[in-house]
Write a protein that binds this DNA or RNA. Structure first.
Lengths: 215, 215
DNA sequence: TGTACATCAGTGAACGCGCGTTCACTGATGTAC
DNA sequence: TGTACATCAGTGAACGCGCGTTCACTGATGTAC
């Protein structure tokens, strides 16, 4: 490695340990949920003493923030990669479902019941909006030529500051909100286990909801 | 009060204290969420010592169970009362929304991310099904005469053991699942605060979703 | 290449906290004769 | 109506636990001359 390389061995070691801490944190979240996340437990699991982690994270909140950021980042990248390789709205929706099922607690960390006492920092909102933009673009492309102009679209024409930076017809915003809430409705009930006992296939419900949105 | 009255003063006192414990528990849940519920904190709030509560609840899990039962019971009663006074499917949906907004954490206790380490007992499933039945009946009544027979309905015709006791056409079951997941999608994102920052009116989104289901 | 110093990862002890839960006990309330 | 006894609500002390976090320290790694 060239001498000019800015990453010193120590820096590389640091980022590596940070990464391992977060990996263990994800394992712990997958098992017991985000509210049970404990620095001491992670340290023990890594064969280290508890205070050692304070070399890598200022406190528990910063670790959670980093996890939230990583999750948003991963979802944003996954979706925009799918969009870049030609996925349409239905494709993006299925990508979202696959992503959520791959690690339910990760999805629930972002979109489930908020972790009590934790407030997400400003910059995660930016990534969250990046995700929205990807979906809104796909919604715009999926709009029928003659948009019906629902009451929701009319309302959004006047209440679109949240998408002010991004040009899109109000019908696309309406479609986006419908899409988001419907997919989340199926996913969150499925992941929370509210369909267990009912033996139907949640994927068919998901596809059905998708079909009524686009068909 | 007649001598034959089976409720002795002590029994009345017991149920009264139990009720107050649960009231305080709801306050605590409303503030910090269900996973932060603490027997000691409730006792302190009532001006009692911690161990005193063990006269009324065997342990923390039994208290949570009682809260879950009460919430399900209240929702089931609210919905069936609405149905009894002539509310149609849209009316029931709006009743559900009102109920959820009245106490967000109560709604999230039932339908949000599960409390880690807590498993709901069997008999709450029964009340949950009671709720489903009320909604399914309204769905049956709301079906157009010539049901379209979606792929979801076709699937449900073969996977309806969860509604085996209750006669309803598969199209009604399909409508019920769509309704449930869509309303929950809007409600849970709204209650979890994922719409804050976007200035649109969640009620209009709710109504829009409802309209596409029924109209 | 070798030595002197600075950096920094990790440890163990400690603090204060709140939790769920058990237990022996006090004191008030209700019951039986 | 009065006394003797049983029931039971509530207390305070205690146990063991795990948490987040601070701090003084050790020992290894990297840097400068």
């Amino acid at each position: 490695m060239a001498k000019s390389d800015p990453t010193t061995p120590r820096e590389r070691y640091r980022t590596q340990v940070r990464a391992e801490v977060m990996e263990r944190a994800w394992e712990q979240i997958a098992t017991a949920g985000a509210s049970a996340l404990s620095l001491n437990a992670i340290a023990k699991h890594m064969g280290m003493s508890g205070p050692a982690l304070y070399r890598y994270f200022a406190n528990r909140d910063e670790l959670i923030t980093e996890l939230v950021r990583e999750a948003y980042r991963d979802l944003a990248d996954t979706l925009s990669a799918a969009a870049a390789s030609g996925a349409d709205l239905a494709g993006l929706a299925r990508t979202l479902r696959t992503w959520a099922l791959a690690d339910p607690q990760r999805y629930l960390l972002l979109y489930g019941t908020p972790v009590p006492g934790y407030e997400a920092p400003e910059d995660t909102r930016a990534i969250s909006q990046e995700i929205a933009v990807t979906l809104i673009d796909a919604c715009t492309a999926a709009l029928p030529r003659t948009a019906p102009g629902s009451p929701l679209a009319a309302h959004l024409a006047d209440h679109r500051t949240w998408a002010a930076d991004h040009p899109a017809p109000p019908e696309a915003l309406a479609l986006f909100l419908s899409l988001w809430t419907r997919l989340h409705g199926v996913l969150s009930l499925e992941l929370a286990g509210h369909f267990t006992g009912m033996q139907f296939d949640a994927e068919i419900l998901f596809e059905s909801e998708l079909a009524t949105l686009i068909g």
